[in-house]
Write a protein that binds this DNA or RNA. Structure first.
Lengths: 224, 224
DNA sequence: TGGATGCACCGTGTATACAAGGTGTCCACA
DNA sequence: TGTGGACACCTTGTATACACGGTGCATCCA
């Protein structure tokens, strides 16, 4: 999704389209919890706030529907989707199904970890030390995504990535509320890398299983 | 996706929106191969053909992008996506990953096949006898989707269903070109039902594996 | 004759005006 | 006082007009 342009990407203005601005503003507003869950969004109001007409706003809302941020009810408008604890668990289960499959295949074919793994792990540890949660979160996504894509199936790669924006909705919150988990995450990443290096499928999968369960466990603590 | 409304659904007009009409017309035109792969679609032309203005057409194109039918190139427009044999294989692999996971869990929990299974199998055999390929194809989707959803994870269910429109793009073609495969498909469905009934995970999975490979094998025959 | 530059045309991106449908309120009547 | 219906307002759905940017062609210069 790439809300909140990272410091690196936010350079010169590439003449961002109005639709893109609307998409990012509305998307991050939902992430930030500006709108109540279940609330209907008024296109005209949004347009005013973004500083454009309704047209780009409508297109942004359609994209947000595709990403499951809102529900488009005919003649009623865009309703902010309610994210339940159940759905969160399902998203993480889905992640595990796809990523563990990738890991198994990577080990079967003795591919080893993706080449950029080491670099990513170190970048994450730096971001962690600097308490830069957004950066940390994004790098975590790249780390896992690179594993899934290393397996070679682009369709599964896309699907895996599409789960990201949905989990981010709670991910940042959980991360900032439990930063002591950071060292655990980092250790697990290194363990996973080592297991992939050793082409040990079952071990890799069990590490991933524990690793991915980390977050939903946290979520459940303060779920509705 | 529900192009070509089935005979059952096509009853009285529920005041279908212009966007929906545009979506179905353009979508089925792509399925029918009316446009060349890689071709850029002209919004104004499409609007004229659908009988509406450009606005609903644009919204339809955005949805078709989400479903991977077209690629939206900024300032250039909607390009009909090229479907390669590789991508087809990847889609079927993805299906297998999700559905086999569902099957394994269904057997682990001793849930048995979904209640509607028997009914669906019989409806498919009727459709097959009547050489009604669209009906057959849709029922096949419902059959497999019901298995995935029987496992209980709605997110994985949605993802699985989203793969459908993409594979339909070649599915109908392969079906009409190889109708002798019909009895094989029907037999495998019954075998799968029996294996689920017996809570036999490995057997169910291996049946599914063979079953799902059927189509991409056909595809490869006349791939580029 | 080949390449580069500028201009014109065309198609997408955005804004705005208009149409249609639904929701809530207010009034009338039981 | 409660309930039912009609009307008005408000919001989405669609059409159209305008702005912006890119592509391709033609012309000019080397």
């Amino acid at each position: 999704m790439s809300h909140q342009k990272s410091t690196a990407t936010g350079g010169s203005k590439p003449r961002q389209s109005a639709r893109e601005r609307a998409y990012e503003m509305i998307g991050s507003a939902i992430l930030a919890g500006t709108f109540a869950e279940g609330e209907f969004l008024d296109e005209a109001v949004l347009a005013r706030e973004v500083g454009t007409s309704r047209t780009p706003v409508r297109e942004a809302l359609h994209r947000l529907q595709a990403e499951r941020f809102v529900e488009l009810v005919p003649r009623r408008g865009a309703q902010v989707r309610v994210v339940t604890a159940t759905e969160m668990r399902e998203i993480y289960q889905a992640r595990f199904v796809i990523e563990s499959d990738a890991i198994t295949k990577i080990c079967d074919r003795r591919l080893g970890p993706p080449p950029e793994t080491r670099e990513l792990i170190e970048a994450m540890e730096t971001a962690g030390r600097n308490r830069n949660w957004n950066e940390f979160s994004q790098l975590d996504q790249v780390f896992h995504s690179s594993i899934v894509r290393h397996q070679g199936n682009a369709v599964l790669g896309e699907i895996y990535d599409s789960l990201r924006p949905r989990q981010v909705r709670l991910g940042v919150r959980t991360l900032t509320e439990g930063p002591e988990r950071l060292s655990i995450i980092e250790r697990e990443h290194r363990e996973l890398e080592a297991a992939l290096e050793g082409h040990d499928g079952p071990l890799s999968t069990s590490i991933l299983n524990v690793h991915i369960q980390e977050v939903p466990k946290l979520v459940q603590a303060f779920s509705r």
